[in-house]
């Protein structure tokens, strides 16, 4: 049965995630008992490091792979639970602002990536995939776009490898930059949500900075994810006009099909919280469920990052992606800092 096949991998995610949490707590307890100030390394980082170590030394055995691949499912469940920590007003204000930022980000990213793609002589469809991957949602956007624009498997795997490698890099780089710039939790969370590729990496980068930053990173990233259908549809129409992809007949149905449904769950739970449907202990329990679900995700981020596989994909798509990412990181940072007083960040 399907669930039975997934069980070993899900257990592995839970063990690695819990080992990360246990390590953080043990180090803190040791420091306290011995009156020593030890650096506080968050459970998020430990879980990712343990996963990375396994994936890049012994590799994940085949028995565990179907379950490890569920890490994005737990992420989506975690995001729905996280709705409990938002009031609808915040979601509308910050989510709406995020959508505006995403629109600007998209325009700049598409123009820049197209120019870079030409400079580095990448295939136009690979360039489209890199632009979609770096501006919206990383791997899921690339998968959604691949079918719609009729791209090669090879182009899609190049784009995914580049986006994953850059996501892994951002995971460590963003919190360090955020601390160096003295950003507050909300500002950093919004920045990570808008600039870090892949929802799992954006959530992890935010949570590495602080719990509150993780919450706002999810909000901004969720707004970004919601635009996936529109962007993929835009590209599909463009490539159909070039007679290099199939025409999409029912555009409304296409948009609905590509829309990430967990966003609706997140909004619903946030609405329930705003209407006061949860008692304080209930809201705390649901928020904790979200943390546990994210813990499985963070373990999965490490386990699925295979550095050797990324090396095999070659440097050019990675360089194009990296230049684009730096530009997007700078642009989104400027937008967040500029809009901070207006948004009360």
């Amino acid at each position: 049965m399907n669930l039975l096949r997934k069980l070993p991998g899900i257990l592995l995610l839970a063990v690695i995630g819990y080992a990360g949490k246990f390590t953080e707590q043990s180090i803190a307890a040791y420091g306290k008992a011995h009156h020593t100030a030890l650096p506080n390394i968050e459970y998020v980082l430990w879980a990712i490091i343990f996963g990375l170590l396994i994936a890049n030394t012994v590799r994940v055995p085949a028995l565990f792979r179907p379950g490890v691949d569920t890490y994005e499912f737990w992420l989506k469940i975690g995001i729905v639970f996280l709705g409990v920590r938002f009031v609808v007003g915040d979601v509308v204000k910050l989510g709406g602002a995020s959508l505006l930022f995403v629109a600007i980000e998209l325009g700049v990213s598409i123009a820049l990536m197209t120019w870079l793609g030409k400079k580095f002589q990448l295939s136009p469809k690979l360039t489209s995939l890199l632009a979609i991957g770096s501006s919206i949602c990383g791997v899921s956007a690339i998968i959604a776009a691949k079918g719609a624009i009729d791209a090669d498997d090879e182009d899609a795997s190049y784009a995914m490898a580049a986006v994953l490698a850059l996501g892994a890099f951002s995971l460590f780089a963003f919190p360090a930059i955020g601390h160096a710039l003295g950003m507050n939790d909300k500002m950093f969370g919004m920045w990570a949500g808008l600039a870090v590729d892949n929802t799992a990496e954006a959530t992890a980068a935010g949570t590495l900075f602080s719990d509150t930053a993780g919450k706002f990173a999810v909000l901004a990233k969720t707004a970004r994810n919601a635009t996936i259908g529109f962007v993929v549809l835009g590209y599909a129409i463009y490539w159909a006009k070039q007679s290099q992809a199939k025409e999409i007949a029912r555009k409304g149905a296409f948009l609905w099909e590509k829309f990430p449904k967990f966003v609706l769950g997140f909004l619903l739970v946030s609405l329930m919280a705003t209407l006061g449907w949860f008692t304080k202990p209930q809201a705390a329990d649901i928020a904790n469920l979200s943390r546990w679900a994210f813990l499985l995700t963070f373990a999965g981020v490490g386990l699925r990052t295979d550095l050797r596989e990324m090396k095999k994909q070659g440097m050019r798509p990675f360089v194009v992606g990296a230049i684009g990412e730096f530009a997007i990181a700078g642009l989104t940072l400027a937008m967040i800092v500029g809009a901070a007083p207006l948004l009360g960040l």
Binding site: F73, K76, I77, F81, V84, K261, D285, L289
Partner: peptide, 30 residues
């Protein structure tokens, strides 16, 4: 009709929230 994993994530999360609200789930610490 087969539901996508996306929908399943929403259904499972809402079911768990329902259990919390009904008091059928033990307290979840972090």
């Amino acid at each position: 009709m087969k539901l996508s994993l996306d929908w399943w994530s929403v259904i499972l999360a809402l079911a768990a929230i329902g259990l919390v609200m009904a008091g059928a789930m033990p307290h979840i610490p972090w």
